[in-house]
């Protein structure tokens, strides 16, 4: 028994010696302190450059026509905190034609602004519509079948003369070389194109009222421009 007690004491001494050796080592540390300042993604309408129709200049030499007006408003503002000075964009624009009639062309050119800090890509544009008098949904018809463009019409189940007739033609284009009301430059397909931070690109909304549009009716349409982080297609799932 005494031998066992002696042996345990010896073991304890050896163990403590081993620990003492470990703590006695000279040590030093290197720390990496990381900070990720996240950017923000804000895309909206900065301002409207022009809103007009073709009543005045369609038929040179004829008496002018003064019946329709193109009205617009910007709603749902958001201010980017990353810009100096701060930039305010609007997520909704209302456009109203007060007296529409067949063959009337109307257009709005507005600045689509990337008010955030990372590049964005226009991911998609959707168009929906409604005939509020008949309480009918209008169907979007992609007339050029190009997935990067918005060129088509809204089909009314009951037009002025025929069933399933297009009552409104709509087009959306980027105008990268826009220089003013009389100088639009070339048109580019909007979907898939990029807008860099702090950059605005002029965008054209073109509207043409067709013969099938019904008298005294009110047509509503909604165009949703969806922009996503530019690399969303190659981004891995979380």
């Amino acid at each position: 028994m005494n031998k066992k007690i002696m042996g345990m004491f010896a073991l304890l001494v050896v163990a403590l010696a081993a620990c003492g050796y470990a703590y006695a080592t000279w040590v030093d540390t290197l720390a990496i302190k990381g900070t990720v300042h996240m950017g923000d993604l804000i895309v909206g309408i900065l301002d409207v450059k022009e809103a007009d129709d073709n009543e005045m200049e369609k038929y040179p030499g004829e008496p002018n026509k003064w019946v329709n007006t193109v009205e617009y408003d910007l709603l749902d503002s958001e201010t980017s905190v990353h810009h100096t000075p701060a930039v305010t964009v609007y997520h909704t624009m209302t456009v109203k034609l007060t007296v529409g009639y067949p063959c009337l062309d109307a257009w709005v050119v507005f600045d689509l602004k990337n008010a955030g800090t990372i590049p964005v890509k226009i991911k998609g544009i959707t168009v929906t519509g409604k005939d509020t008098k008949d309480v009918e949904d209008l169907t979007w018809v992609d007339e050029d079948t190009d997935p990067t463009t918005i060129v088509g019409g809204l089909k009314d189940p009951t037009g002025q003369f025929n069933l399933d007739a297009i009552v409104l033609n709509l087009e959306v284009w980027k105008l990268p070389d826009y220089a003013g009301p009389d100088d639009w430059g070339g048109k580019e397909a909007p979907i898939g194109s990029q807008i860099h931070p702090c950059t605005a690109v002029p965008v054209l909304l073109w509207l043409n009222v067709k013969q099938e549009a019904e008298e005294c009716h009110t047509y509503e349409f909604t165009i949703t421009i969806e922009a996503a982080q530019w690399n969303w297609e190659v981004c891995e799932a979380p």
Binding site: L41, I42, V43, G44, I45, V67, N68, V89, Y90, H91, T92, M93, T94, V95, K96, L97, T98, V99, G100, Y101, V108, L112, G116, I118, V120, K123, L168, L205, L207, V209, A213, E214, E215, C216, H217, T218, Y219, E220, F221, T222, I223, T224, I225, E226, A227, A228, Q229, W232, C235, E236, A237, P238
Partner: peptide, 26 residues
């Protein structure tokens, strides 16, 4: 859920144009 998670994971924003065409009468 993984597929949905991927779809919702991207950062995105949108601008909406709400149009109204009030037709006249001839």
């Amino acid at each position: 859920l993984g597929i949905l998670g991927f779809a919702y994971a991207m950062w995105k924003d949108q601008a909406v144009i709400k149009g109204t065409v009030e037709m006249g009468s001839l």
